[in-house]
C-alpha cells in the first residue's frame, strides 16, 4: 500500500487523497494517515514541479562537479558532503563509486558565478583533492519526464 501510494505520488504529486483512495480501493482517511506517517518518517520530503526553464526567460547555468575527496578521519564522506550541501547553490550531492567521490550539482546565474563558487568554496576545502566542472548544455530528460517534446495527442479524435 505505502509503495503504491509513493509510486503514484512520485508520478503526479497533484493527486488528491480521494483520487488515491479510488485508485487503491481504500478511503481518503486511510490515505491521509499513510501519507502523514510517511511525511513524519521523512519518506515523503516535499512536493515540487518539474520545470523546463529553457522555455522561460530565466538566465541560469547548471554544472555538475566531480569532486575527489579525502574522507575525514572517523567521519567518512558524510561530513564532507554535509559541509557542501549546506550551500543553497548546491542542488544535489551524491556519493559515487568509480572515478570520483562526490557528484555535486550547482546552479548559478552565470558560468563565472558557478566557476567562482567552485574555486572559492569547494576547491579550497581541506578534504577536497580535486574538482572537475562540467556545464550542462541541454536537458533531455529529468525524473522520467522528457523535455522539449510537445506532448500532443495525435490519435484520431474517435475510433471504434
Amino acid at each position: 500500500m505505502q509503495e503504491k501510494i509513493l509510486r503514484l505520488l512520485e508520478n503526479d504529486g497533484n493527486y488528491t487523497n480521494e483520487q488515491l483512495a479510488t485508485m487503491l480501493d481504500t478511503t481518503p482517511q486511510k490515505i491521509a494517515e499513510q501519507i502523514a506517517k510517511m511525511r513524519e518518517k521523512g519518506i515523503i520530503l516535499k512536493y515540487s514541479a518539474i520545470i523546463d526553464w529553457e522555455k522561460t526567460n530565466r538566465e541560469f547555468v547548471t554544472a555538475r562537479i566531480e569532486l575527489r575527496v579525502t574522507p575525514q578521519r572517523g567521519e567518512g564522506f558524510d561530513k564532507v558532503a554535509e559541509r557542501i550541501y549546506q550551500y543553497p547553490q548546491v542542488k544535489s550531492v551524491y556519493l559515487m563509486s568509480g572515478g570520483y567521490d562526490l557528484g555535486v550539482t550547482i546552479e548559478g546565474k552565470t558560468m563565472k558565478e558557478v566557476a567562482l563558487f567552485v574555486a572559492e568554496k569547494l576547491a579550497p576545502m581541506e578534504s577536497v583533492v580535486s574538482t572537475k566542472t562540467h556545464f550542462v548544455l541541454k536537458k533531455y530528460k529529468q525524473n522520467g519526464v522528457i523535455f522539449c517534446k510537445p506532448q500532443k495527442d495525435e490519435r484520431r479524435v474517435i475510433t471504434l
Binding site: R155, R156, V157, T159
Partner: peptide, 13 residues
C-alpha cells in the same frame, strides 16, 4: 471539432 476533449479513442494512449 478538432479541439474537443475526447474519450472516444479505441486505442492505447
Amino acid at each position: 471539432m478538432p479541439d474537443a476533449l475526447s474519450l472516444g479513442v479505441g486505442e492505447p494512449d
